[in-house]
Nucleic acid binder design. Structure first.
Length: 485
RNA sequence: GUCCCUAUCGUCUAGAGGCCUAGGACAACACCCUUUCACGGUGUGAACCGGGGUUCGAAUCCCCGUGGGGACGCCA
């Protein structure tokens, strides 16, 4: 799978296999400096779907070369997020920190081949150079002072300075590629400078590791956020210098926050696990994300199987999309409605347990889910609805005075008698209710609402007979007696 | 500042020169259903950023503005 040696022979095999089998291999390559947020999740989803659609492989690669900022917690958070979304990689996770020998080897080769060179410029000198360039309204870039040229005399390396290694970027011509989502993009080499591929301490940098990894891992399609568009020409030049085949590139436009501004840690860019926390079903989040920047005619609701079958890069919008919670809520409500009762029951238990409510075996949470699934937008609302079934509420004072009038109490007493001997089947419950209406001359709401107040501490609920059935005789009578005295 | 990307209802989007009097969905509003609240059903309002071209014909192609975004690290 991964090779540590890059001999010419195996380069040849690599090219051959790409051309002959056309295997699609995509990757998701997050850096573990934080959790998996919604933008990263969509990138992963699209890369995953593209590979699946073409019967190829989806690879997860953790780009942890920034030792300062990478944490094991973040690695775990990314893995958790992907597992929750069921975006299972076919290969990996691979860690760049475990491939250091390979990067160093390639750097040595480039140094030997003259496609890279040592640069002894200090950070201070660099900063000064940039400041000058900015003062002249120029794009800040390295001036190539340590770049070897035929007939050029290089400065003498200062003593005691550890050099960085820079890539010898072509100086003229343009780098162009047909972006899978944005179309043809051309960038002049004059815009690019000789970027650093190895730091003074010898560790390789991002643009270099990406190139070596994409090459070694035989990535055929690089699908990533469009904040990487500017890196692409550098990576293409590097790949060419290495004699490596070029993958195809597709750059996804970004996801903006609900207010149209960039997602930031402060708003919108929450962990995907937060959506679990907030009561969203992963299939709702996935469906929502799939439609954010991609479309298939008028189709809005579809399974992941369907998505994989339909997915292509031709129907991706090239402009940024704004996150819209209302639509996510709508999808979530839809998926809850169509979700299996037993699974919803488990979700109710899990969420109730989180609030310290245990002993939720009776009534069956799945039965409560069946009662409420088509009236909630998220699983937390479902758990909230289930709560009073397990913890008898005290009817709020104002609801009691407003609804538990003498007439209502009389009706409830009448109903209690009939219920005491009922078997709590839907038929007998409906019959008892009707008899009470007839006996008291009240209308259904005049009995149902006081009953809701007594049983659930609320004026709203599903059909009261269904509530009675789920709550069960024993508990219903207990609650009636407690309030009616 | 320089370079790159981008622009259809409030939002996500359909749209590949005539199928567009611009379609769908969310949200909003109205009505219907109703045992309360929801669900659901039906319906209404709502958009091609501006200006120039090309063409018999432009939402669609080209140019220039303008708005938005990204990049310009010994971060990824």
């Amino acid at each position: 799978m991964l090779r540590n040696a890059g001999s010419a022979a195996h380069v040849k095999i690599r090219i051959f296999s790409c051309l002959s089998t056309m295997t699609v291999r995509t990757r998701f390559a997050p850096s573990p400096t934080g959790y998996l947020h919604i933008g990263g999740a969509r990138t992963a989803l699209f890369a995953w779907a593209y590979a699946r659609h073409h019967g190829g492989q989806f690879i997860l690669r953790i780009e942890d070369t920034d030792i300062e900022r990478s944490t094991p917690e973040a690695v775990q958070a990314i893995l958790d997020g992907m597992r929750w979304l069921r975006l299972t990689p076919d290969e990996g996770p691979f860690f760049q920190t475990q491939r250091m020998m390979r990067y160093k080897e390639v750097i040595q080769q480039m140094l030997a081949a003259g496609t890279a060179y040592r640069c002894y410029m200090s950070k201070e000198e660099l900063d000064a150079l940039r400041a000058e360039q900015e003062a002249r309204h120029e794009k800040p870039r390295y001036d190539g002072r340590w770049r070897p040229e035929p007939g050029k005399t290089l400065p003498t390396p200062p003593a005691g300075v550890q050099p960085v290694v820079r890539f010898r970027n072509p100086t003229d011509g343009v780098v162009a590629w047909d972006d899978l989502v944005k179309g043809r993009i051309e960038i002049s080499n004059a815009e690019l400078d000789d970027f650093i591929i190895a730091r003074a301490d010898g560790t390789p940098t991002y643009n270099f590791c990406v190139v070596v990894d994409d090459w070694d891992m035989r990535i055929s399609h690089v699908i990533r956020g469009d904040d990487h568009v500017n890196n692409t020409p550098r990576q293409i030049n590097l790949l060419r210098a290495l004699g490596a085949p070029l993958p195809r590139y597709g750059h996804l436009s970004m996801i903006l926050g609900p207010d149209g501004t960039k997602l930031s840690k402060r708003h919108g860019a929450v962990s995907v696990m937060q959506y679990d926390e907030d009561g969203y079903l992963p299939e709702a989040v996935l469906n929502y994300l799939a439609r954010l920047g991609w479309s298939h005619g008028d189709d809005e609701i579809f399974s992941m199987e369907q998505f994989v079958q339909w997915f292509d890069l031709d129907h991706i919008t090239s402009s940024a999309a704004q996150f819209n919670t209302e639509k996510l809520n709508w999808l979530n409500a839809h998926y809850i409605k169509h979700c299996d009762d037993a699974r919803l029951g488990q979700e109710i238990r899990r969420r109730l347990a989180r609030e310290g409510v245990t002993g939720t075996a009776f009534p069956d949470p799945a039965a409560i889910a069946a009662l409420y699934k088509d009236r909630v937008q998220n699983l937390n609302e479902l758990a909230d609805a289930a709560h009073p079934f397990y913890v008898a509420p005290h009817p709020p004072a104002e609801l009691a005075t407003q609804h538990l009038t003498e007439a209502a109490r009389a009706a409830l007493r009448d109903l209690r008698c009939r219920l005491a001997s009922a078997d709590f089947s839907p038929e007998t419950l409906a019959k008892a209710l009707k008899e009470t209406l007839a006996a008291t001359g009240l209308k259904m709401p005049q009995v149902a609402i006081p009953l809701r107040v007594v049983l659930l501490g609320q004026t709203q609920s599903p059909s009261i007979d269904r509530v009675l059935a789920v709550m069960g005789r024993e508990e219903v009578l207990k609650r009636l007696d407690r309030v009616m005295g």
